[in-house]
Write a protein that binds this DNA or RNA. Structure first.
Length: 732
DNA sequence: CCTCATTGAGTTTTT
DNA sequence: CTCAATGAGG
């Protein structure tokens, strides 16, 4: 008889069948981490040690959570509905919805994404009269989130200097504003939930009694706050099964502390640390490269991956002259691979930062190769969708100032800044929301009438949608708000109308998945105090939109080349992987070099990138690259030097395409004629004019054709290098 | 008060 | 380059 345990190796089997005790599983890349986790869940349930509802499994991404559920239900004939499997944010949201009163939140509390959060911060700072030159709102946002991830409220923050004291004032005022509006940001979901459990003993012991087993994926990425939350939920008697890999910790920048692994061992008296070191994914050379690279990091728990596979192909390294050359090379190779029968969807093109996808996309688009870009603008982040969501948020909760401000004058209805500033001032004075302020004392005059019209528009929407099923609510709102009509008149608005209609579909899909089809938007969810399940109806949908900003398009089955950042590639694997832009300053990124531990994190990132490949790995870099509209000259990444040369085959002999590049001077005879070099119609010594810099004289030139650059001495602006292809230079 | 245009500034990773 | 914020004109 076949068992779910079949095919596990010794360490995997041991991990899966551990008794009820806390354990740490150090799982290297490709060592079957997800399999162990899901089999553990299935085994616990199958052997009757735990009911499906008495365990909780936490991941970082929605994708991972879905994957876990899919795999579990493939192993066991049980319904996964109602199981507590999800992201930290998703699970906390669920608890807060169920106990919103105890948590001090309105039933309809809304979730802010980072952009929403930033705009609240800007508003608050304006209200406090904080100089946003000296205190960039972005930095205030970082300050607030970093402290929340540490579990600290404003009154707990130790601000030692004037600067952070001021930021901390913003933090306090921001939290006050969010409370008034009934909105929470991402970190707040966790912190609020943690405080709820900490404060409310009844709830805490209920959940502690319920969740005998806690399973945590990607444990190295947990923040201080997430760890505290887990520890609280585990209490004295429950077992945490933590799976992680310190070498793949790549989220320190947002508060992840791989040190939690050591703390976990201490706090829970972990007796069992199991290392999974056999890699089932990659050929030997790829693994050797990864191992050699990561050995340059000092702060490691120590682990060495091995495989029973042969070495396989050598890694391939390509040095391109330009970023365009790099993508042309990649394109060629992809074509060849595809012709050899490798599926495009089994090939990944990885880069350090999203900006790099542009050139690659351009090349792929021109060559008509199917590709899919992960990341970037997500469905629920598109402007038209956010507008529609703002109307929906107002239907749910009129105190949501962010939503109010977003659509009070969209589509335009003649309400300007002045009116809104007055309204905001009155709201501040009365410590009320904009909506309440406007209702209490409707503004006078022509624009006042527009405000009143807006208020009744939203009121009418609320009345008209009460009791309707979710998709019809959305349909009504996008129509009645005038959004559809507005985008229909815009000439580039076709896609936006499509997206709005797609939002209705998203609502239908959500309702179906949640089994709400028959339920209505305003009908109360079953009033179970402790077992209250997923949020329902409109609020549930809005939470879904915020928490799952849109793997909406991701799983479409078409065979397409996969483009993504290294970060978003974590957890995935491909037959062939291209890593592009392996240059100092880009990868490792220059910003990381100043932060302590920054370089080691970049190296772990590189480690993640390498270990995504099963069979073939390309390492690409370019001598010059366009960045911020300027050409940058880069040297090869140090990470390339950290990979043993015998594993790598250099597929080109770095020959500069033009004589102007590279360190090797062309060894030809002196220029035949003494006439000045002519580049793109300009010559050295010529007087030119630039729209921004004014007039100047060309003093140097290099490169040819599309790469041509000239150095100009401007009368007013001094020396500048300009790319002829982009700079609007004219003869003077 | 709105729209358009220009200018200026900023660019890592994401639940 | 590309987005966001600012300023002049309708």
């Amino acid at each position: 008889m076949s068992s779910i345990l079949d095919g596990l190796n010794e360490q995997q089997l041991e991990a899966v069948t551990l008794p009820h005790q806390s354990a740490l599983i150090l799982a290297g890349a490709g060592s079957g981490k997800t399999r162990v986790l899901t089999t553990r869940i299935a085994w616990l349930i199958q052997t009757g040690q735990v009911s499906p509802l008495a365990l909780i499994a936490v991941t970082f991404t929605n994708k991972a959570a879905r994957e876990m559920l899919t795999r579990v239900s493939a192993m066991l004939p049980i319904s996964t509905r109602g199981m507590w499997v999800g992201t930290f944010h998703g699970l906390c949201n669920r608890m807060l919805r169920a106990h919103h009163r105890d948590a001090g939140l309105p039933q309809t509390f809304q979730i802010l994404d980072s952009a929403d959060q930033l705009s609240v911060i800007k508003r608050v700072m304006k209200g406090l009269g904080v100089d946003d030159e000296k205190y960039p709102p972005k930095q205030a946002q970082w300050f607030i989130n970093a402290n929340k991830e540490e579990g600290l409220r404003a009154h707990q923050v130790e601000a030692t200097d004037d600067f952070s004291r001021r930021l901390n004032e913003v933090y306090a005022a921001y939290d006050g504003q969010c409370t008034r509006e009934g909105v929470v940001d991402f970190a707040e979901l966790l912190l609020r939930c943690y405080e709820l459990l900490q404060r409310n003993e009844l709830l805490r012991s209920h959940y502690q009694a319920r969740f005998r087993h806690l399973l945590v994926d990607e444990f190295q990425d947990t923040s201080r706050l997430q760890y505290l939350w887990l520890r609280l939920l585990a209490g004295a008697d429950n077992a945490i099964f933590a799976v992680g890999d310190d070498d793949q910790s790549i989220y320190a920048f947002r508060g992840a502390r791989s040190g939690n692994m050591l703390e976990f061992e201490r706090d829970f008296g972990v007796r069992k640390v199991i290392k999974l070191e056999q890699n089932y994914r990659s050929h030997g050379n790829i693994l050797d490269a990864a191992n050699a690279l990561i050995r340059h990091n000092r702060l490691r728990l120590g682990k060495n991956l091995w495989t029973s596979e042969s070495g396989g192909e050598p890694l391939r390294q390509y040095e391109a002259t330009t970023d365009v050359d790099e993508s042309a090379y990649i394109l060629d190779e992809v074509r060849t691979l595809h012709a050899e029968g490798v599926r495009l969807s089994d090939v990944a093109l990885l880069y350090r930062s999203n900006a790099q996808s542009r050139v690659l996309e351009h090349a792929l688009f021109t060559a008509a190769i199917a590709y899919r870009v992960y990341g970037g603008l997500r469905f629920f982040e598109r402007q038209e969708v956010k507008h529609a969501l703002a109307y929906l948020r107002l239907v749910s909760n009129t105190d949501d100032d962010g939503a109010f401000l977003r659509v009070v004058n969209f589509p335009a209805r003649g309400i300007g800044n002045r009116t809104l500033e007055q309204l905001q001032a009155r709201a501040r004075d009365g410590a009320a929301s904009l909506w309440r302020a406007a209702c209490a004392q409707p503004p006078q005059g022509k624009t006042g009438a527009s405000i009143v019209a807006f208020l009744s528009l939203v009121e009418d929407m609320r009345a008209a949608t009460r009791g309707l099923p979710l998709p019809e609510v959305i349909e009504h709102v996008i129509e009645a708000s005038g959004l559809i009509a507005h985008y229909k008149t815009e000439k580039e608005g076709g896609d936006r109308v499509d997206n709005l209609e797609e939002l209705v579909n998203a609502g239908t899909a959500f309702a179906a998945e949640e089994g709400l089809a028959a339920r209505t938007a305003d009908a109360p969810a079953e009033n179970e105090v402790f077992t209250a399940d997923r949020p329902s109806g409109l609020d549930g949908f809005l939470a879904h939109a915020a928490l799952e900003a849109g793997e909406h398009q991701a799983s479409a089955g078409a065979d397409a080349l996969q483009l993504m950042t290294v970060h978003s590639a974590k957890g995935l694997e491909f037959h062939t992987v291209f890593i592009s832009g392996l240059e100092e300053g880009l990868f490792p990124h220059e910003n990381s070099l100043n932060e302590d531990g920054g370089l080691e994190e970049e190296r772990r990132l590189m480690y993640v990138a390498i270990t995504r490949a099963r069979r073939r790995l390309y390492l690409c870099h370019a001598q010059t690259r366009m960045l911020h509209g300027q050409i940058r000259y880069n040297v090869a990444s140090r990470f390339l030097d950290e990979i043993p040369a015998e594993l790598v085959k250099r597929v080109n002999t770095a020959s500069p395409a033009t004589g102007f590049f590279g360190s090797r001077a062309p060894s030809f005879a002196p220029a035949p004629a003494p006439q000045p070099a002519i580049v793109g119609g300009f010559r050295i010594g010529q007087s030119v004019r630039h729209p921004r810099f004014g007039s100047g004289v060309i003093i140097k030139a290099e490169g040819r054709g599309a790469d041509a650059r000239v150095q100009v001495n401007f009368r007013d602006s001094g020396l500048k290098w300009l790319a002829l292809e982009y700079a609007k230079l004219s003869a003077a």
